[in-house]
Design a protein around this nucleic acid. Structure first.
Length: 705
RNA sequence: GCAUCCUUAGCUCAGCUGGUUAGAGCGUACGAUUCACAUUCGUAAGGUCACAGGUUCGAUUCCUGUAGGGUGCACCA
């Protein structure tokens, strides 16, 4: 018996050695795989944010994607799993800002290039950890093809898409109301916001002859009108008339307009219109040709149009203005009011809508082909119900603001006119004069929303349009990612992929749910219930973690990951080890020895069922079946019964010996995509190989389906 | 408000197109064992499959409704 088998299984002694063995073999690269391999199977890895260490969610995607790749590799596909790293624009800048704050520094006032360089160094450092951790989890991805979202070739592709969208009139520069975070000093897309329910006060204010209800009295200096419902009998006489409104800093003239969005029953039925600081008001103002007057600046302070309130923060201004209105007898009443506010998804601060010129992508023309691809079944989404969520979102999509006022990211290749807000793409950096007003153009300082570039990831990483990889591996097979980024990322990849390449980027979307703690609670540092995958790997082995992540985990739903569960699969690794110890302690017989058809038939039925589950993305069932067979059938029954049979040397014993050895080898194959390390180690020790030396490229037990 | 998912053993969850005594892991109780097992094996307890209707020969599984929970989206100042 191999001396390694003398000791209990120790993943720590095994896993890195086995990973090196695979890497040296070159089998992670599709061109090194032997055989016909005419059918490609490609997965583009969702590039982890290169701003920290991997968390349990990363371990989950690695497990599922590696499982699919290993399975398909054994099935004879030309498998490519392309790894990557994401600079993660805003996300990383936020992480870095926190670091700066700890050091008593701030990004504001820093030289832009210096900030960029610092974050780049930080990111490249973290990228190394991330890569090492992917390896520790057993990721059999092709490192020779690894991409980073800021690679020059990627940026070139992204720029090309920007230009093409502009030429097709699908991108425009618009001065519209955008979500503005006063802490992070950037606009955010609609997706980068979170809604928060709050109880504020609803103030009833005397506006000339009318009374309006508002939660934001401090914006009254930016009012341009009062709106009423056209059918509201109370206000007919005022419609289209000017009214004189008294404020703490003087009086102002407002027009009364009629618009159906105003609810007669809410408040007083009269609505003050502040186009620069409210989305509905902005839309209404457009319909009525009203101007937008900004009274709050980018830091969330009142500006010089507000007289004595200039410089006050919004909250302070609100209290002060209300007090002053009360004094003037203009505050009729106030009542508590529960409503939702839009907040920054990172810092939780209430976003301040601002009117600034930004680049927008017209979404409807892009959404339609994406919807069709999903409706027609060209793209299948697992689980099935997420298809409805997906189409519901695309059906109601709004234009996408892709400008970010941050340094960390891909700078938008465009020139803008500071005078008239005109903007034009300029990839060659040649344009100098504004085509609209003749002023001098300047480089747009903004960067792309990180999802604009990562939305092009599948074809950008493969080198669209001329690279061989693009021709060989696109469209890719499966996009496996978190259900939480279905809109952020998956939808954008489908839309931009279809737009740029005229092909779907992948035929299947597999969405995994969030990994929770053992009680089903969200993991967070403050709760102290975070499971660090690398600590787990060191303690129980990557195989155990992988099994714990796969079994009992259905697509699209959150899963609970308790340490006890991982421990249970550590025991399973050991069980497998001991099954092998028992079987391998008997010397192999010669090839002529007959085998037991009934036991092999039973195994083949298992292999068929497992294969069927894997083909249908039911990894949780496949894993459970093999586990159950190995432990409760092979070990508990077949081996137990074999002890007596093997005790008496002879033909019967030889037949059993041969059968056991065959079944063990096949079981290791079935288990390999789930538990790659221990199975490869046992495959090596048992010298099962007939054609190749590595289990990673052995044939799958079940070949005809 | 709209959409969507969930409610199955003490806990966390499976149960794929409806069909014999509803499963897994952990936990619990009792017993055995160092013969492959830094342990393992055996046995057991524990579920009116949220509730109410309906379809069906038959429903945990399909349909409708009710209650509770989660998630997403959109909102009336």
């Amino acid at each position: 018996m191999d001396p390694k088998l003398e000791k209990p299984y120790n993943p720590a002694d095994t896993e890195s050695r086995i990973y090196d063995l695979w890497q040296e073999s070159g089998f992670f690269q599709p061109e090194n795989l032997s055989g016909d391999r005419s059918k490609p199977f490609t997965i583009i890895m969702p590039p982890p944010n290169a701003n920290g260490h991997l968390h349990a969610g990363h371990a989950l995607f690695v497990t599922i994607e590696d499982l699919m790749i290993r399975y398909k590799r054994m099935r004879g596909f030309k498998t490519l799993w392309l790894p990557g790293a994401d600079h993660a624009g805003f996300e990383t800048q936020v992480v870095y800002e926190k670091k700066l704050e700890k050091e008593g520094r701030s990004r504001f006032g820093m030289d832009r290039q210096k900030l960029y360089d610092e974050i780049m160094a930080f990111t490249l450092e973290n990228k190394k950890y991330m890569e090492a951790e992917l390896k520790a989890l057993g990721a059999s991805c092709d490192w020779s093809r690894e991409k980073f979202t800021l690679d020059p070739a990627i940026i070139k592709t992204v720029y090309g898409t920007f230009q093409q969208l502009y030429d097709d009139d699908l991108i425009y520069r618009g001065k519209r109301l955008v979500n503005w975070c006063t802490k992070h000093q950037t606009s955010l897309s609609d997706l980068e916001t979170s809604t928060e329910t709050r109880i504020d006060k609803l103030y009833y204010l005397q506006y000339g002859p009318l009374v309006v209800a508002t939660v934001r009295p401090e914006t009254m200096f930016g009012d341009v009108a009062v709106a009423v419902n056209p059918d509201d009998e109370r206000y007919q006489q005022y419609i289209d008339q000017d009214i004189e409104v008294q404020t703490p800093i003087g009086s102002m003239k407002l027009k009364v307009v009629a618009d159906p969005i105003v609810e007669k029953d809410f408040g007083t039925g009269a609505l003050k219109i502040t186009p620069a600081h409210d989305q509905n008001d902005f839309d209404l103002a457009k319909r009525h040709n009203l101007p937008a007057i900004e009274v709050i600046d980018q830091f969330g302070k009142l500006n010089d149009k507000t007289g004595k309130y200039t410089g006050l923060k919004v909250d302070e201004a609100r209290t002060t203005v209300v007090a002053d209105l009360k004094e003037l007898g203009l505050l009729i009443k106030e009542e508590p009011y529960e409503h939702n506010v839009i907040a920054c998804y990172k810092c939780g601060r209430v976003l301040e809508p601002r009117v600034i010129p930004q680049w927008f992508v017209k979404m409807e023309p892009l959404a339609k082909p994406a919807l069709k691809a999903v409706y027609d079944g060209d793209i299948k989404i697992i689980p099935d119900f997420s298809k409805k969520i997906f189409t519901n979102w695309l059906d109601n999509i709004r234009d996408w603001n892709i400008s970010r006022q941050i340094a960390w990211g891909i700078q938008i290749p465009a020139k803008i006119c500071p005078k008239c807000d005109f903007g034009v793409p300029d990839l060659e950096n040649k344009k100098t004069t504004c085509g609209q007003c003749g002023s001098e153009l300047v480089q747009d300082p903004d960067t792309f929303d990180t999802w604009f570039s990562s939305g092009q990831w599948p074809f950008a990483t493969l080198g669209y349009p001329e690279n061989k990889d693009y021709k060989n591996f696109y469209p890719t097979a499966v996009m496996e990612t978190g259900a939480d980024i279905l809109f952020f990322w998956v939808a954008r990849m489908i839309m931009l992929g279809l737009y740029r390449t005229n092909q779907i980027p992948f035929h299947t979307v597999y969405l995994h749910g969030m990994v929770r703690d053992g009680q089903g609670l969200k993991m967070s540092k403050s709760k102290g219930n975070v499971i660090n995958p690398i600590e787990i790997v060191n303690k129980y082995g990557a195989d155990a973690l992988r099994m714990a992540l796969v079994i009992g985990n259905t697509p699209g739903t959150a899963m609970a990951l308790a340490e006890d569960k991982i421990k249970a699969y550590k025991h399973f690794s050991n069980k497998l080890w001991n099954i092998s110890r028992f079987i391998l302690s008997y010397a192999p017989t010669d090839n002529e020895t007959p085998t037991e058809a009934n036991l092999l038939k039973e195994f083949n039925e298992l292999a068929t069922a497992v294969t069927n589950d894997l083909e249908n993305y039911r990894f949780y069932l496949a894993g459970e079946k093999i586990y159950h067979y190995a432990w409760h059938r092979l070990a508990d029954e077949i081996i137990e019964e074999s002890k007596a049979i093997l005790a008496t040397p002879g033909e019967v014993a030889d037949t059993r010996r041969q059968t056991l050895r065959l079944i063990l080898g096949q079981t290791l194959k079935l288990l390999h995509p789930f538990m790659p390390f221990v199975t490869e180690e046992l495959w090596q020790i048992g010298k099962f190989s007939t054609t190749s030396s590595l289990l990673i490229v052995e044939d799958w037990p079940h070949q005809n389906d």
